[in-house]
Simulated assay, not measured.
Amino acid sequence: MPQRKQEVATHIAADFLTRCFAQGETIALLLKRESPSATLQRIVPLERALEPRYLCWLAHENSTGANIYVAANPLRVGSRKRTKESIAEVRHLYIDIDSDGEARIAALRASDAVPAPTAILSTSPNKYQTLWRVEGFDFERQESTLKLLAIAFGGDPACTDCNRVLRVPGFMNCKYVPAHRVTVEYPCDFVSNPDDFHLDIPASDAVLSLRGVARQMRRDKHTHSERDWAWVLHQLAHGKDAANLTHALASRRADKPNPHYYAQRTVDMASARLWMLEGAPINDVITLLEVRRRFEIPAALCYARAREIAETAQRMIARRKIA
Protein backbone atom coordinates (compact mmCIF):
# COMPACT_ATOMS: atom_id res chain seq x y z
CA MET A 1 0.00 0.00 0.00
CA PRO A 2 1.53 3.39 -0.99
CA GLN A 3 2.61 5.52 1.97
CA ARG A 4 0.01 8.25 1.42
CA LYS A 5 -2.88 5.79 1.08
CA GLN A 6 -1.68 3.94 4.15
CA GLU A 7 -1.68 7.16 6.17
CA VAL A 8 -5.22 7.97 5.06
CA ALA A 9 -6.42 4.44 5.83
CA THR A 10 -4.92 4.35 9.31
CA HIS A 11 -6.22 7.85 10.12
CA ILE A 12 -9.78 6.85 9.14
CA ALA A 13 -9.50 3.61 11.10
CA ALA A 14 -8.14 5.35 14.19
CA ASP A 15 -10.92 7.95 14.09
CA PHE A 16 -13.54 5.20 13.85
CA LEU A 17 -12.12 3.20 16.75
CA THR A 18 -11.82 6.34 18.88
CA ARG A 19 -15.47 7.20 18.25
CA CYS A 20 -16.63 3.67 19.01
CA PHE A 21 -14.67 2.91 22.17
CA ALA A 22 -13.35 4.63 25.30
CA GLN A 23 -9.85 4.84 26.64
CA GLY A 24 -8.98 1.81 28.75
CA GLU A 25 -11.43 -0.52 27.03
CA THR A 26 -10.51 -3.88 25.54
CA ILE A 27 -11.41 -4.52 21.92
CA ALA A 28 -11.25 -7.53 19.61
CA LEU A 29 -9.73 -7.19 16.13
CA LEU A 30 -10.23 -9.92 13.56
CA LEU A 31 -8.09 -10.41 10.45
CA LYS A 32 -9.66 -12.78 7.94
CA ARG A 33 -8.24 -13.94 4.62
CA GLU A 34 -10.40 -15.40 1.91
CA SER A 35 -7.89 -17.44 -0.11
CA PRO A 36 -6.37 -19.39 1.41
CA SER A 37 -8.85 -19.17 4.26
CA ALA A 38 -7.21 -18.00 7.47
CA THR A 39 -8.33 -16.10 10.58
CA LEU A 40 -6.26 -14.23 13.15
CA GLN A 41 -7.76 -12.56 16.22
CA ARG A 42 -6.11 -10.02 18.49
CA ILE A 43 -7.63 -8.85 21.79
CA VAL A 44 -5.92 -5.65 22.86
CA PRO A 45 -6.52 -2.43 24.79
CA LEU A 46 -7.83 0.40 22.62
CA GLU A 47 -4.62 2.37 23.21
CA ARG A 48 -2.56 -0.46 21.73
CA ALA A 49 -4.73 -0.61 18.62
CA LEU A 50 -4.33 3.14 18.10
CA GLU A 51 -0.55 3.06 18.16
CA PRO A 52 0.85 4.12 14.75
CA ARG A 53 2.97 1.00 14.53
CA TYR A 54 -0.02 -1.24 15.24
CA LEU A 55 -2.20 0.55 12.69
CA CYS A 56 0.56 0.24 10.09
CA TRP A 57 0.70 -3.50 10.77
CA LEU A 58 -3.06 -3.73 10.17
CA ALA A 59 -2.66 -1.73 6.95
CA HIS A 60 0.12 -4.04 5.79
CA GLU A 61 -1.98 -7.13 6.49
CA ASN A 62 -4.90 -5.56 4.65
CA SER A 63 -2.70 -4.77 1.65
CA THR A 64 -1.80 -8.46 1.42
CA GLY A 65 -5.41 -9.67 1.46
CA ALA A 66 -6.60 -9.67 5.07
CA ASN A 67 -10.02 -8.17 5.81
CA ILE A 68 -9.98 -6.11 9.01
CA TYR A 69 -12.87 -6.32 11.49
CA VAL A 70 -13.56 -5.13 15.04
CA ALA A 71 -16.07 -6.44 17.56
CA ALA A 72 -19.01 -4.05 17.90
CA ASN A 73 -18.88 -4.13 21.69
CA PRO A 74 -15.96 -3.88 24.15
CA LEU A 75 -14.72 -6.98 25.96
CA ARG A 76 -14.15 -7.58 29.63
CA VAL A 77 -10.64 -6.81 30.80
CA GLY A 78 -8.54 -9.96 30.69
CA SER A 79 -10.65 -11.67 28.02
CA ARG A 80 -8.84 -14.07 25.74
CA LYS A 81 -11.73 -14.95 23.45
CA ARG A 82 -14.51 -13.04 21.71
CA THR A 83 -17.40 -15.01 23.17
CA LYS A 84 -20.78 -13.65 24.21
CA GLU A 85 -19.79 -14.18 27.83
CA SER A 86 -16.70 -11.98 27.39
CA ILE A 87 -18.63 -8.91 26.16
CA ALA A 88 -18.47 -6.18 28.80
CA GLU A 89 -21.51 -4.11 27.77
CA VAL A 90 -23.74 -3.18 24.87
CA ARG A 91 -22.15 -0.26 23.04
CA HIS A 92 -23.77 -0.43 19.60
CA LEU A 93 -26.83 -1.54 17.72
CA TYR A 94 -26.17 -2.44 14.09
CA ILE A 95 -27.63 -3.95 10.95
CA ASP A 96 -26.04 -5.44 7.84
CA ILE A 97 -27.76 -4.39 4.61
CA ASP A 98 -26.66 -6.69 1.79
CA SER A 99 -29.23 -5.92 -0.93
CA ASP A 100 -31.14 -2.86 -2.18
CA GLY A 101 -28.69 -0.89 -0.09
CA GLU A 102 -29.36 2.59 -1.45
CA ALA A 103 -33.13 2.29 -1.08
CA ARG A 104 -32.94 0.78 2.39
CA ILE A 105 -30.48 3.33 3.70
CA ALA A 106 -32.75 6.08 2.31
CA ALA A 107 -35.73 4.54 4.12
CA LEU A 108 -33.72 4.32 7.34
CA ARG A 109 -32.68 7.96 7.11
CA ALA A 110 -36.28 9.05 6.52
CA SER A 111 -37.79 6.92 9.29
CA ASP A 112 -39.02 8.44 12.53
CA ALA A 113 -38.96 4.98 14.17
CA VAL A 114 -35.22 5.16 14.85
CA PRO A 115 -32.75 7.92 15.69
CA ALA A 116 -30.12 9.00 13.20
CA PRO A 117 -27.31 6.41 13.04
CA THR A 118 -23.96 7.15 14.61
CA ALA A 119 -22.11 5.71 11.61
CA ILE A 120 -22.94 4.32 8.18
CA LEU A 121 -20.25 2.14 6.60
CA SER A 122 -20.23 1.45 2.86
CA THR A 123 -18.66 -1.99 2.82
CA SER A 124 -19.00 -2.65 -0.94
CA PRO A 125 -21.22 -1.33 -3.75
CA ASN A 126 -24.82 -1.10 -2.49
CA LYS A 127 -23.97 -2.86 0.80
CA TYR A 128 -23.85 -1.15 4.19
CA GLN A 129 -23.32 -1.64 7.89
CA THR A 130 -25.19 0.85 10.07
CA LEU A 131 -24.34 1.57 13.72
CA TRP A 132 -26.08 3.36 16.58
CA ARG A 133 -24.06 4.25 19.66
CA VAL A 134 -26.30 3.33 22.60
CA GLU A 135 -26.54 3.06 26.35
CA GLY A 136 -29.11 1.47 28.64
CA PHE A 137 -29.43 -1.79 26.68
CA ASP A 138 -28.95 -5.18 28.29
CA PHE A 139 -27.99 -8.11 26.06
CA GLU A 140 -31.52 -9.47 25.76
CA ARG A 141 -32.95 -6.13 24.71
CA GLN A 142 -30.11 -5.54 22.29
CA GLU A 143 -30.78 -8.83 20.52
CA SER A 144 -34.53 -8.26 20.30
CA THR A 145 -34.03 -4.75 18.94
CA LEU A 146 -31.51 -5.98 16.36
CA LYS A 147 -34.08 -8.47 15.08
CA LEU A 148 -36.68 -5.74 14.66
CA LEU A 149 -34.23 -3.41 12.97
CA ALA A 150 -33.43 -6.16 10.48
CA ILE A 151 -37.13 -6.69 9.76
CA ALA A 152 -37.93 -2.99 9.47
CA PHE A 153 -35.04 -2.02 7.20
CA GLY A 154 -34.17 -5.21 5.33
CA GLY A 155 -31.04 -6.11 7.28
CA ASP A 156 -29.51 -9.54 7.72
CA PRO A 157 -31.65 -11.28 10.40
CA ALA A 158 -28.71 -13.48 11.40
CA CYS A 159 -26.62 -10.54 12.62
CA THR A 160 -28.01 -10.27 16.14
CA ASP A 161 -25.16 -11.53 18.36
CA CYS A 162 -23.55 -9.21 20.89
CA ASN A 163 -20.08 -10.43 19.80
CA ARG A 164 -20.70 -9.53 16.14
CA VAL A 165 -17.75 -8.04 14.22
CA LEU A 166 -17.91 -5.03 11.88
CA ARG A 167 -15.58 -3.91 9.13
CA VAL A 168 -13.12 -1.18 10.01
CA PRO A 169 -13.39 1.76 7.59
CA GLY A 170 -10.30 3.01 5.80
CA PHE A 171 -9.20 -0.51 4.94
CA MET A 172 -10.04 -2.50 1.82
CA ASN A 173 -12.78 -5.11 1.53
CA CYS A 174 -10.73 -7.89 -0.05
CA LYS A 175 -13.65 -10.19 -0.82
CA TYR A 176 -14.01 -8.51 -4.20
CA VAL A 177 -11.85 -8.04 -7.29
CA PRO A 178 -10.97 -5.26 -7.42
CA ALA A 179 -11.00 -4.69 -3.67
CA HIS A 180 -13.40 -2.05 -2.36
CA ARG A 181 -12.34 0.56 0.18
CA VAL A 182 -14.67 0.64 3.19
CA THR A 183 -15.85 4.22 3.75
CA VAL A 184 -17.77 5.78 6.62
CA GLU A 185 -19.95 8.78 7.35
CA TYR A 186 -21.12 9.99 10.75
CA PRO A 187 -24.69 11.36 10.54
CA CYS A 188 -24.73 12.29 14.24
CA ASP A 189 -22.76 11.90 17.44
CA PHE A 190 -25.65 11.33 19.83
CA VAL A 191 -25.83 8.38 22.20
CA SER A 192 -29.27 6.77 21.95
CA ASN A 193 -31.25 4.82 24.53
CA PRO A 194 -34.07 2.26 24.27
CA ASP A 195 -36.79 4.92 24.30
CA ASP A 196 -35.38 6.40 21.08
CA PHE A 197 -36.26 3.26 19.11
CA HIS A 198 -39.99 3.20 18.40
CA LEU A 199 -40.20 -0.43 17.37
CA ASP A 200 -42.47 -3.14 18.70
CA ILE A 201 -39.93 -4.61 21.11
CA PRO A 202 -42.11 -7.38 22.68
CA ALA A 203 -42.91 -8.79 19.26
CA SER A 204 -39.25 -9.55 18.65
CA ASP A 205 -39.47 -12.67 20.78
CA ALA A 206 -41.79 -14.08 18.13
CA VAL A 207 -39.59 -13.38 15.11
CA LEU A 208 -39.23 -16.62 13.19
CA SER A 209 -36.65 -17.79 10.73
CA LEU A 210 -38.65 -18.80 7.67
CA ARG A 211 -35.66 -20.55 6.21
CA GLY A 212 -35.28 -22.57 9.37
CA VAL A 213 -38.95 -23.52 9.34
CA ALA A 214 -38.71 -24.46 5.67
CA ARG A 215 -35.72 -26.71 6.31
CA GLN A 216 -37.53 -28.40 9.18
CA MET A 217 -40.58 -29.00 7.01
CA ARG A 218 -38.44 -30.58 4.28
CA ARG A 219 -36.82 -32.93 6.76
CA ASP A 220 -40.08 -34.03 8.31
CA LYS A 221 -43.07 -34.25 6.02
CA HIS A 222 -45.45 -34.77 8.94
CA THR A 223 -44.67 -31.80 11.18
CA HIS A 224 -47.40 -29.78 12.86
CA SER A 225 -46.27 -26.77 10.84
CA GLU A 226 -46.79 -28.53 7.54
CA ARG A 227 -50.23 -29.72 8.56
CA ASP A 228 -51.08 -26.16 9.58
CA TRP A 229 -49.83 -24.94 6.20
CA ALA A 230 -51.96 -27.41 4.27
CA TRP A 231 -55.01 -26.62 6.38
CA VAL A 232 -54.61 -22.86 5.95
CA LEU A 233 -54.17 -23.19 2.19
CA HIS A 234 -57.34 -25.27 2.01
CA GLN A 235 -59.33 -22.82 4.14
CA LEU A 236 -58.21 -19.79 2.13
CA ALA A 237 -58.92 -21.52 -1.17
CA HIS A 238 -62.49 -22.08 0.04
CA GLY A 239 -63.03 -18.45 0.97
CA LYS A 240 -62.29 -18.50 4.70
CA ASP A 241 -61.89 -14.98 6.16
CA ALA A 242 -58.24 -14.27 6.99
CA ALA A 243 -58.99 -12.66 10.35
CA ASN A 244 -61.13 -15.58 11.50
CA LEU A 245 -58.59 -18.04 10.17
CA THR A 246 -55.76 -16.31 12.05
CA HIS A 247 -57.75 -16.53 15.28
CA ALA A 248 -58.60 -20.19 14.68
CA LEU A 249 -55.00 -21.17 13.93
CA ALA A 250 -53.71 -19.32 17.00
CA SER A 251 -56.20 -21.27 19.12
CA ARG A 252 -55.07 -24.57 17.56
CA ARG A 253 -51.40 -23.82 18.21
CA ALA A 254 -51.34 -22.66 21.81
CA ASP A 255 -48.08 -24.62 22.12
CA LYS A 256 -46.26 -21.93 20.14
CA PRO A 257 -44.29 -19.22 22.05
CA ASN A 258 -46.47 -16.60 20.36
CA PRO A 259 -49.49 -18.32 18.76
CA HIS A 260 -50.95 -15.13 17.30
CA TYR A 261 -47.72 -14.16 15.56
CA TYR A 262 -47.34 -17.69 14.20
CA ALA A 263 -50.91 -17.64 12.89
CA GLN A 264 -50.51 -14.21 11.28
CA ARG A 265 -47.36 -15.30 9.54
CA THR A 266 -48.73 -18.60 8.28
CA VAL A 267 -52.00 -17.09 7.00
CA ASP A 268 -50.23 -14.20 5.28
CA MET A 269 -47.62 -16.43 3.66
CA ALA A 270 -50.30 -18.76 2.36
CA SER A 271 -52.35 -15.81 1.10
CA ALA A 272 -49.37 -14.34 -0.73
CA ARG A 273 -48.68 -17.67 -2.41
CA LEU A 274 -52.28 -18.10 -3.55
CA TRP A 275 -52.54 -14.53 -4.86
CA MET A 276 -49.36 -14.93 -6.90
CA LEU A 277 -50.47 -18.26 -8.31
CA GLU A 278 -53.62 -16.45 -9.42
CA GLY A 279 -51.45 -13.93 -11.27
CA ALA A 280 -51.34 -10.98 -8.85
CA PRO A 281 -48.21 -8.77 -9.27
CA ILE A 282 -45.89 -8.73 -6.29
CA ASN A 283 -46.55 -5.04 -5.58
CA ASP A 284 -50.27 -5.74 -5.31
CA VAL A 285 -49.56 -8.61 -2.94
CA ILE A 286 -47.44 -6.34 -0.75
CA THR A 287 -50.24 -3.77 -0.62
CA LEU A 288 -52.86 -6.41 0.26
CA LEU A 289 -50.74 -7.77 3.10
CA GLU A 290 -49.95 -4.30 4.40
CA VAL A 291 -53.61 -3.23 4.40
CA ARG A 292 -54.65 -6.48 6.09
CA ARG A 293 -52.36 -5.96 9.10
CA ARG A 294 -52.17 -2.15 9.27
CA PHE A 295 -54.06 -2.03 12.58
CA GLU A 296 -52.19 -4.97 14.13
CA ILE A 297 -48.54 -4.27 13.29
CA PRO A 298 -46.57 -1.05 13.90
CA ALA A 299 -46.31 1.15 10.84
CA ALA A 300 -42.51 1.03 11.00
CA LEU A 301 -42.63 -2.72 10.38
CA CYS A 302 -45.79 -3.27 8.36
CA TYR A 303 -44.52 -2.51 4.85
CA ALA A 304 -41.13 -4.20 5.37
CA ARG A 305 -42.88 -7.28 6.73
CA ALA A 306 -45.35 -7.39 3.83
CA ARG A 307 -42.55 -7.08 1.30
CA GLU A 308 -40.45 -9.79 2.94
CA ILE A 309 -43.42 -12.21 3.00
CA ALA A 310 -44.29 -11.48 -0.63
CA GLU A 311 -40.70 -11.98 -1.77
CA THR A 312 -40.44 -15.22 0.20
CA ALA A 313 -43.67 -16.51 -1.36
CA GLN A 314 -42.34 -15.57 -4.79
CA ARG A 315 -39.18 -17.60 -4.18
CA MET A 316 -41.23 -20.56 -2.95
CA ILE A 317 -43.20 -20.58 -6.20
CA ALA A 318 -40.04 -20.21 -8.31
CA ARG A 319 -38.35 -23.13 -6.55
CA ARG A 320 -41.40 -25.32 -7.06
CA LYS A 321 -41.42 -24.55 -10.80
CA ILE A 322 -37.72 -25.44 -11.08
CA ALA A 323 -38.26 -28.68 -9.19
Score class of each variant (00 low, 15 high):
residue 290 E to G: 04
residue 256 K to R: 14
residue 266 T to Q: 13
residue 80 R to T: 14
residue 111 S to C: 10
residue 251 S to N: 11
residue 189 D to M: 00
residue 164 R to V: 07
residue 315 R to N: 11
residue 151 I to F: 03
residue 289 L to E: 07
residue 112 D to P: 00
residue 303 Y to C: 05
residue 278 E to L: 11
residue 314 Q to W: 09
residue 77 V to M: 06
residue 94 Y to I: 02
residue 267 V to E: 01
residue 69 Y to H: 12
residue 57 W to I: 01
residue 256 K to T: 05
residue 36 P to F: 06
residue 32 K to H: 08
residue 111 S to Q: 12
residue 158 A to N: 06
residue 131 L to W: 07
residue 268 D to V: 00
residue 20 C to R: 01
residue 254 A to P: 00
residue 264 Q to I: 10
residue 239 G to L: 07
residue 261 Y to K: 02
residue 132 W to R: 06
residue 146 L to S: 00
residue 104 R to P: 04
residue 141 R to S: 15
residue 112 D to M: 06
residue 60 H to N: 08
residue 3 Q to Y: 09
residue 13 A to M: 02
residue 112 D to V: 07
residue 197 F to K: 00
residue 303 Y to N: 11
residue 180 H to E: 12
residue 317 I to F: 05
residue 317 I to G: 01
residue 178 P to I: 01
residue 108 L to N: 07
residue 292 R to C: 12
residue 150 A to C: 15
residue 174 C to P: 01
residue 128 Y to K: 02
residue 16 F to A: 09
residue 291 V to P: 05
residue 121 L to H: 06
residue 274 L to C: 07
residue 239 G to P: 06
residue 214 A to T: 11
residue 117 P to W: 07
residue 118 T to K: 01
residue 115 P to M: 10
residue 288 L to S: 11
residue 215 R to F: 14
residue 128 Y to N: 04
residue 68 I to N: 01
residue 26 T to C: 12
